[in-house]
Amino acid sequence: MASICVAEVDVVYHGQSAHASAMPHKGRNALDGLLLAYQAISNLRQHIRHSERIHGIVTDGGRAPNIVPDRAAGEFYVRAKNAEDLEALKPRVRACFEAGAKASGCDVEMNWGGVDYLDLNTNWPLAAAFKANAEMLGRKFDADDERSLTGAGSTDMGNVSHRVPSIHPMLAAAPRNVVIHNPEFAKYAGGEMGEQAALDGAKALAMTAFDFLADTRLQADAKRAFAIAKGLG
């Protein structure tokens, strides 16, 4: 599985409530601040790398249409191929939030997650062992499944993979044309195909763990690959 870095940030805009029709000039619209930032981020997407992603949602947009929102909140994910690119992208996103606050006359607080998820450092000797074991169980892999660099998901397993040799295999729980994070995918994943993927995955992982414990060559290959990937070999 290919995986990229992600940083999570919660933003809250603070404005001034007022009657939206009778006294709008007394208000400072926090929702305007958030939506201006959202639009700025949408524009920023035109000028970031193809391996980078920024997406978010509004979690609080006000209480009633006739009240100028004095509070608005959103949750955003910022993703990049590696930690260096992620750190370079964060200030550009931060500037969008600050611009929304300045334009709307509101204040903004940004609460970044304490730990970013890192990109996945796949250990290819272990991945090859897993693939062989999964194939023994009847699973089939396409050639482009092996080292795909287009994966745009993120996982805390990425952090683990920078500490010790790791893999994060994926087995199909739905037909290839089914979009993930979608009701149709949930139907397949909760059905027979998903159950079989879970069973095959558990078996293949157990078989791979046994191979690693019993095969000194696999241990050495995994250790060497990890050192090279970390620039230590």
Rank of each mutant, 00 (worst) to 15 (best):
A99K: 02
R139E: 15
M157D: 01
P175Y: 04
N121A: 14
A143D: 14
D211Y: 05
E84N: 09
G191S: 12
L213A: 14
T150K: 15
P175M: 01
G190I: 08
F141T: 08
N177Q: 14
T216R: 14
E195V: 05
L213Q: 12
N111K: 14
E98Y: 11
D85G: 11
Y117V: 03
A186Y: 03
G151M: 10
E109Q: 15
T208F: 01
I180G: 13
L86S: 05
R163C: 13
G201H: 08
E195Y: 06
A99C: 10
L89P: 01
R139D: 12
F212A: 03
V160T: 12
G151F: 03
R147I: 03
S154D: 00
K131W: 07
W112T: 10
A80H: 06
M207W: 11
L213H: 05
M157A: 14
E109Y: 07
L171Y: 02
A132Y: 09
C106M: 05
N133L: 09
C96Y: 05
A186V: 07
A134K: 08
N111F: 13
F212G: 08
M157Q: 13
R71Y: 02
A189V: 06
V178F: 09
D85C: 08
L149C: 02
G113H: 06
R92V: 06
A172R: 10
Y117R: 07
C96V: 06
S154R: 03
N123T: 01
E192T: 13
N82T: 06
F97M: 06
G105M: 05
A174R: 02
V108D: 04
E146F: 14
M136S: 14
N177T: 10
G100A: 06
L89D: 03
K81M: 11
P125Q: 08
T216K: 14
G114F: 01
V178N: 05
A132I: 00
N182L: 02
A173V: 13
E109T: 15
P165F: 01
K90M: 11
T122K: 11
G194N: 11
A128S: 11
H162D: 08
P183V: 04
M110T: 00
S166A: 15
E195A: 12
Y77D: 12
L118H: 08
T122I: 15
D145N: 13
L213T: 13
L205Q: 07
F210V: 15
K140Y: 03
S104I: 05
D200V: 08
A83Q: 13
V178G: 00
D85I: 05
F130L: 05
G194T: 06
V179W: 01
P169L: 08
A143V: 13
